[in-house]
Nucleic acid binder design. Structure first.
Length: 118
RNA sequence: GCGGAGGGCCGGAUGGCCGCGUGGGGGCGACCCCGCGAGGAAAGUCCGGACUCCACAAGGCAACGGUGCCGGGUAACGCCCGGGCAGGGAAACCUGACGGAAAGCGCCACAGAGAAGAAACCGCCUUCGUUUCGACGGGGGUAAGGGUGAAACGGUGGGGUAAGAGCCCACCGGGGGGCUGGCAACAGCGCCCGCAUGGCAAGCCCCACCGGGAGCAAUGCCGAAUAGGGAUCGUGCGCCGGUUUGAUCUUUCGGGAUAUCACGGCAGGGGCGCCUUGGCCCGAACGAUCCGGGUUGGCAGCUGGAGCCCGCGGGCAACUGCGGGCGCAGAGGAAUGGUCAUCCAGAGGGGGCGACCCCUUGGACAGAAUCCGGCUUACAGGCCCUCCGCGCGU
RNA sequence: UGGGGUGUAGCCAAGUGGUAAGGCAGCGGUUUUUGGUACCGUGUAUCGUAGGUUCGAAUCCUACCACCCCAG
């Protein structure tokens, strides 16, 4: 699997994705973010996904690559260990939105998901 | 120059910074350095193979599926090349499931008289009878005309006839057989036959040829855990030899025995529809059905292949022989991304007589998943070659 | 990645060469004070798309499109 950054693992199992979907989500213009706080002291984990609605294989892979790049730049500073994050691509926007705004989207979503105690 | 036809190719480029996958090297290590890193369709999964498993091979029969003018190319093909025939186009050229309908069966709705060894509805001709002299009815002849239909049993013209008819003649069409050319499909040229014998085979079918099934999520190895499975049914535990230094038993030591084992042979059982032959497995097992438990790891398969490029030779060509050179993605929920700059095409706007300059915008279809050969489908824009027609100039 | 299947009216669907059944839903009536029920009538189909075979195609053939299912 592709390495995002040191100390960040990638989600592989379907069950982990489903658990995140149940826990909490925050939508933005560029992406949908789901996050879950696990009850252990493991590392930060992150996963990427796109539905077929996004487009053909080229469009889906492109969306996932941009999300991966955003995660690489943002998560080490704004993410927290012991949490799982799932970034979901959106039709059109994930591929077309200016990159800096995409980063802003993720920072905003993380702030919302971590809660007011942060 | 304009319009058209065919074929081939490209499919943004370069560099910086931050990242990703992989191979190699260095370092105790954090890490560092170097190399490589999507396509012409990687796509659809429509054909053909390689490879692996079902243990396998050969032949025949049957079934099922596919292909379908001829010849060649190829590992193979439903692909490609060349040729023939038919259709289209003024031409270059394009298109074609293009074997068989007197082997057989089936179907041809509606309309129509009649739809496949024909058929008199209206007509036409002739004859008999009746007659109100308009015609009506019966018998016979007739497929030229009308009408129906997608299709009506050769066509046109002339002769002929009571009216007609290949009844006769000319031309066209058709069938049969011959000669010549060609490997062949087929073509050309005489001869004979007046010639009833539709259409559909992408209906069944016949003929020729080809084909066993499943698929890299195939398959093999290592490791962990658990189970070291259970139930029911079916078949079946057979025969002969077993040499006497194979084993065992027995003995009067000459030998004897086969209940038993090894071994050998024959039967039996097992697998793909069947059969034959070879061959394999089983023999306390095999097969079938059902129930239950487990599977998230690692490695191999995994990229060097019917490979690509160049030269010479053979061939009209597809393609191929020889020689030389190259090393060209290998992930495993899946690597090629982000950003900036300059240039290259494209679009829009402004300035200038113009070459050109400035600003903005913006990059087709699409992402390897075991690997090859094809087909099909998608594709912004651009480049090159050959050919046809028209126009102009010389 | 590989294998298999299905597309007919708004929905469920029958139809295997000759002008596409049926039911639900809809619409308009009758009955009812009204609604429901019941009864009568009625509309709606590029048969997934494009070619081809045939006189004629939902049906036969070819290519394409969409959707669904199964394999570790």
């Amino acid at each position: 699997m592709t390495t995002i950054a040191p100390d960040i693992e990638t989600l592989v199992n379907r069950s982990d994705y489903l658990a995140c979907a149940r826990a909490g989500r925050q939508g933005t213009k560029g992406m949908m973010v789901q996050a879950r706080k696990r009850d252990d002291d493991g590392p930060m984990r992150v996963g990427f996904t796109c539905s077929k609605k996004v487009g053909n294989a080229v469009a889906r892979n492109r969306a996932k690559r941009r999300l991966r790049e955003v995660a690489r730049l943002v998560l080490p500073a704004h993410g927290r260990p012991g949490w799982d994050y799932v970034l979901i691509g959106r039709q059109g926007a994930t591929a077309e939105r200016p990159f800096e705004e995409l980063q802003g989207d993720l920072i905003y979503a993380l702030k919302k998901l971590h809660g007011p105690d942060a």
